[in-house]
Design a protein around this nucleic acid. Sequence first.
DNA 1: TTGAAATCTGAATGATTGCTCACATTTCGC
DNA 2: GCGAAATGTGAGCAATCATTCAGATTTCAA
Lengths: 198, 198
Amino acid sequence: MHQPRKQARQARSRVTQTAIIEATARLLESQGRNGLTTNAIAERAGVSVGSLYQYFPNKEAILATLIRDKRQKLLKGMQQAVLDTQDASPADAVEALIRAGMMHQYERPTLAFEVEYIEQRLELADETAALAEEMAQWVLATVRRLQPSAGLQEARDVVAITKGLINAAAMAGEPDGNALFARARRAVLGYLSQMPET
Amino acid sequence: MHQPRKQARQARSRVTQTAIIEATARLLESQGRNGLTTNAIAERAGVSVGSLYQYFPNKEAILATLIRDKRQKLLKGMQQAVLDTQDASPADAVEALIRAGMMHQYERPTLAFEVEYIEQRLELADETAALAEEMAQWVLATVRRLQPSAGLQEARDVVAITKGLINAAAMAGEPDGNALFARARRAVLGYLSQMPET
DNA sequence: TTGAAATCTGAATGATTGCTCACATTTCGC
DNA sequence: GCGAAATGTGAGCAATCATTCAGATTTCAA
């Protein structure tokens, strides 16, 4: 039984690794989980099947890595937006956060949807939940500047609402990211403005 | 080559047909698209594999039928809600519509999510888009009573926002449908209240 | 009661796919 | 340059799965 290679020492191995992940992403976008065979990944990445197993113990691990990468980048982008707007007005801060999160996903909306679907059925559930919770915390911090009575549930809802809009736009093949952003902004600000007073 | 049976004449055949569809739904809920093999469907339905092919030309056709059924029921439920609230206040009408659509999906939220995923990658795209558009029209009619300036895009967004909240709740295993409804109501009414004045 | 149509059965088939392994090629410190 | 470590190769194995088909069982009109 092959153990995946412990450490990549040469530059070319990192190139291969990246190629595999990117090939996986592209195949997911174009074919969904159906066309995603190990042979297809290898071909698309321009390497042989064997190479996949030098870096990943199995197909699921490739997906897991891809998903982790995506999630990590999304989180970083949102953190950055929060930090960048500490001196801005609350409304601007919320806007920037939406824009950061939304645009990040909107760059590859189909991929974002696939990733979300796969996450559910992978052993990543716990890990993903933890990351989602951290994301909700950052959202909460910003949202509270606008609506101090907001709680974690509201933060999660803001994320959910945004995701819903992105997915719908992706399925409809909607091209205009800015129009989408404007509507997401309305949805989020509208939701927050309806918070029960207490 | 087997042609799927043209017409079911005996009662037992309808029982079998229903059992196959329901078994497919249950498997989707519990295992996702992975565990969904024809043999598993047959076993769960308490029939033999051969029987599947008496009623469906292939596996995809089973899924297509399931999806069509679900969509049809959802549409009917929402139409009913609209008709039932023609004399009610605009706010109540919107509420009833949300409740009808949301609760229908929330009964089996995991299945709803799977169905939505599969729809995308099946040849149902056009058919589904048509149904979605019809749904949007019904939503629009009701939403306009509250916000006359609303257009088709807003109606679609209302649906998307609600879907986003349902999916998030499903993934989190949220048990309280009523709390979810309250938040969906806030989100939708909030979104509509932020409509640009014109 | 009977026989033809309807329905059901499940082992067998062929295609697909995840993964392995024995070997080839490339890199790099010395 | 040299050799060992790192990296890459791809035909082929074993498992899985959608689908078929020849025949068994059930239904029902006459």
